[in-house]
Nucleic acid binder design. Sequence first.
DNA 1: AATGAATGAGGATTCATTCAT
DNA 2: GATGAATGAATCCTCATTCAT
Lengths: 195, 195, 195, 195
Amino acid sequence: MPKLGMEPIRRAALVKATIAEIGARGSLDVTVAQIAKAAGVSSGLAHHYFGGKEDIFLAAMRHTLTVYGAGVRAGLAAAGTPRDRVEAVVKAGFSPENFRAEVIAAWLNFYVLAKTSLPARRLLIVYQSRLRSNLRHALRPLLGPRAAAAAERVAAQIDGLYLREGLAARDPDGARAAAEVLAGLDLELQAKAAR
Amino acid sequence: MPKLGMEPIRRAALVKATIAEIGARGSLDVTVAQIAKAAGVSSGLAHHYFGGKEDIFLAAMRHTLTVYGAGVRAGLAAAGTPRDRVEAVVKAGFSPENFRAEVIAAWLNFYVLAKTSLPARRLLIVYQSRLRSNLRHALRPLLGPRAAAAAERVAAQIDGLYLREGLAARDPDGARAAAEVLAGLDLELQAKAAR
Amino acid sequence: MPKLGMEPIRRAALVKATIAEIGARGSLDVTVAQIAKAAGVSSGLAHHYFGGKEDIFLAAMRHTLTVYGAGVRAGLAAAGTPRDRVEAVVKAGFSPENFRAEVIAAWLNFYVLAKTSLPARRLLIVYQSRLRSNLRHALRPLLGPRAAAAAERVAAQIDGLYLREGLAARDPDGARAAAEVLAGLDLELQAKAAR
Amino acid sequence: MPKLGMEPIRRAALVKATIAEIGARGSLDVTVAQIAKAAGVSSGLAHHYFGGKEDIFLAAMRHTLTVYGAGVRAGLAAAGTPRDRVEAVVKAGFSPENFRAEVIAAWLNFYVLAKTSLPARRLLIVYQSRLRSNLRHALRPLLGPRAAAAAERVAAQIDGLYLREGLAARDPDGARAAAEVLAGLDLELQAKAAR
DNA sequence: AATGAATGAGGATTCATTCAT
DNA sequence: GATGAATGAATCCTCATTCAT
């Protein structure tokens, strides 16, 4: 009798392997064979479940974004004050789970993939929109009409830190990066207060 | 005697074509043949002058950084006040010359290349260092000891805007991007003043 | 389940094709595509099983040496007298199986390959050592301390005949070549006797 | 005014460079550019003087054979006894001038070239014929009707030693090789005497 | 006489993808 | 469900050769 329910297990393993391989090699020049091997299956099976290489990449992107999104939601759920909410959004991006070298490298390559693949672009645009939207909503009670511009600045700073850490030799320091962003946030609040 | 002095001409043409092709395709998956064709020469000649594909990429990076660096220097030379100096550094990154879709796409891919190629990484690290250094020096008279942190924030914001615009469908709007960064700069100055 | 156990079959076919192609063209300038085609497979498969061109060549060398070695062993096993043993070693090298134009040409090119490839050199040195060792042992009972020098002479003569026949237009005549070498052997024995 | 009489100089330099490069790399996979560079000229000039790569190789062969032939003639001219004449022929092949690693490697590759190039084959056949002819004539007074077979044996042994030394790691030892061949010659003479 | 420029064919190698079992 | 077999297109790179000057 055939093994039942293997599909979700295989898919998860392949997605995980994909992120790991893209991260390790730092590029999309990862072969299906490498991914499959890392996942402990044959390359044929990878195609069987995903259809093609791009679909594997897209699944990996979706997974990354899902994990990130879950982190944001969890943070927001636990947040009390408006300030807490902003911090939750920021810190989700720099959590140990997301702000790892391998995941950062994968992110960068997802941006590249988005140049070629429309679905990938859509996925990234959704991410960018959500990030900004989350920040805007969290900042609104604090900054009022200036929330939108501030959200934009904070979002850009977050992305810029990903780029910076992606290049660094050392392991990325999520706590420090988050602190830097929050320091920027303080500026926004001080400026408001200074009025 | 043969046709002499072709080398610099060909190299320049190939470098330009490389940036254009990476920009157009949005990835490093550009063939030497494509680049050569765009430059109006044979693929053999590209290898003849550069040695290999990576060397072509590196030359394109160097060129991009050189153009950027020249823009910064020109801006700084024309700047009078400290504030002018900061604006010059920021605006150089968003000048119509640099902040074009194709160059932005090339930048993104240079970051990817840096994952694989040590010379590429070195080049990008030099860029990051210079950008921050320029910003720090320009901000010092305005912010004193806070200049370093502010420079870091501004730099991250600049990189983040590259990432954002790299994804956007519309043509990048350098003026707007520069204005956003300068708005962030104003916050830094206000916060200082608010003390 | 896929078609299983193809690997040894393909490897054997590719090795055979390699010797045939090197022999036919008389040089190592044989393309993997030619070899693969002669073996009835795609060039990709050749790489799949061997890794690269040099590995294919090495496998062909190993095969040639193995066949030769088996011939020697078979001859020795059937030999009764010391003289028979010497003849067995000599004749193995000139058997119809080994002393064919195509194999002779392959041998010559293996010597060339040995200049570039360390594994190839090792293989050939093993062959040279074994040949001499076989001859020495077989000659010892007949010539005593002179066996070593005699073995050296006989071995050189064998190799020289390969070179001569490799150049000739006509098909190589193993029987005649063996007879020439055995005539040289007789000289060695006569000289001994003449003491 | 053009430089006059450059042709023989250039040709000689290119021929010498060809042998050196084939010897150094141990294969015919030597580029015209390498040869030209080693000769201190442009690759274009090499074609200008020789027409093509194969012609360069042939010229190198001819030169090698000419040097060898001159050595034989010089040795024969100085030889007094028949035995001296045989020794002269043998020693010519193992003179320091000819029995160098680089020349030995070139020889081997000339045999390979002969598989592809008819002129090359003809040249090598001429060499083989002359060698055997020289040996036969020198041996005739000593061995009478057995001279032909003996010449064949000696010639094969010489070629075999080239093959052996071509593979060895150490520098070829011409004196030792010549001694080995002459030891074989002594056998021939002893056998004769033993009748 | 001599050169650097330029080409383009050819070849090793990689890899996504398909398929039979 | 899963695999190894197999393909062939794609690409980098090399190099003999030609040519204008």
